[in-house]
Design a protein around this nucleic acid. Structure first.
Lengths: 196, 196
DNA sequence: CGTCTATTTGAATGTACTCAAAAGCGGTGG
DNA sequence: CCACCGCTTTTGAGTACATTCAAATAGACG
């Protein structure tokens, strides 16, 4: 239950006093979650923002036909939630579940608001976090608009090599917006190219 | 050169004192820009964050073959820049140009940093702005992953009816990630359906 | 009025999907 | 430790969605 990692994460953007650190600790709760556990269920209230201390989670949506679209993977040192629903107190549009046994810290919506009130420094921290999340998603939109499935897959491997090792092809396919069958075909092509 | 609109925008999230307002005014510059003017050129330094007071702008990328991908439209009361490059002092990946004669306020990168130092309240304001931008992009990714071009077009019309009226079909097509020809075909279909 | 660009149309093509079935792989229980 | 079960991955054939290219038409602007 070490807080080292999460404070290292925070200190990349702001400096906290001991007092602020202790206050922050008092607001978060630690959870060990075994693999394949749903920590946020679609349709339920999204009350927590989670920081991944170890393990890996996946956030995804299901359309009417049950096809999954992976919104994001969250591995160690990432923050994850259904942000829109967390912020606006809506029922979750996405489901979040662990891919592996994981340890997470959670900050409730209530504490999220308190935190800004008592330690406004965190406004800056989360501003930067949101900035990064925004630009990341924007780059993803750009990829989706202009690249073929194969190039998107290449990009994914380059950008998130560690994630690629932790998740299944089916999950990668659903992140790229293609079918597992087609991703398989892409990979087959690549291995052929590699030989020539 | 009225600041009413921009302060109304800001006051949706934070309350400013007269002093803070004046300070903010001292940092921004007002610009009238005629239609089809490039305000940010790909490859150049992205030094400004812009608030659209009136008119309409478009941010887009061009791939190697000269095909455009529209990243966003910015109409009155929107903020726009190549955020990634603005924040990290990189050369712009996107081009931003006016679709109509427009009036904008600009905040330079230098002033952006000063602003947070002198008026930390703005951390909160931009945190919320970034949050909204993030969740907006995330929803767009979800649409791209799971919806057909036709449904994405429907969504666009529902979500941004005012924008749909200000931009060409070609530009909408490049926002949706489809060709103008195919958008035309979609529209043809719709009008048929409407008759039956 | 003429020019330039946007939009429409249609035919041929390509990219990615569906469906079905086989093969591979990991975990679990006997 | 092996056998089985369920799930992932692969394969292939047929199909659907979206693109390319070319040409005609319509609209906007100077």
């Amino acid at each position: 239950m070490t807080h080292d990692l999460i404070f290292k994460n925070i200190s990349r953007h702001i400096d906290l006093s001991e007092e602020e650190k202790n206050y922050f600790i008092s607001l978060i709760t630690f959870k060990e979650v075994s693999r394949k556990t749903v920590i946020l269920k679609e349709g339920q209230a999204c009350k927590h923002l989670s920081y991944v201390h170890s393990g890996a989670l996946r956030a995804y949506c299901m359309d009417n036909e049950g096809k999954e679209a992976t919104i994001m993977f969250a591995v160690a040192d990432w923050w994850v939630t259904d942000m829109f629903c967390f912020l606006h107190d809506k029922r979750a549009m996405m489901q979040i579940e662990t891919i592996e046994d994981s340890c997470i810290f959670q900050l409730s919506k209530k504490h999220w608001e308190k935190l800004f009130y008592k330690a406004p420094k965190f406004e800056r921290f989360f501003r930067i976090l949101m900035q990064n999340a925004y630009t990341r998603e924007q780059l993803r939109v750009m990829d989706n608009l202009s690249l073929s499935a194969e190039k998107r897959y290449d990009n994914f491997l380059i950008k998130y090599p560690h994630i690629a090792k932790q998740v299944t092809q089916k999950q990668i396919a659903s992140y790229l917006g293609i079918t597992p069958e087609f991703l398989s075909a892409i990979r087959k092509n690549k291995s052929k190219e590699g030989i020539s």
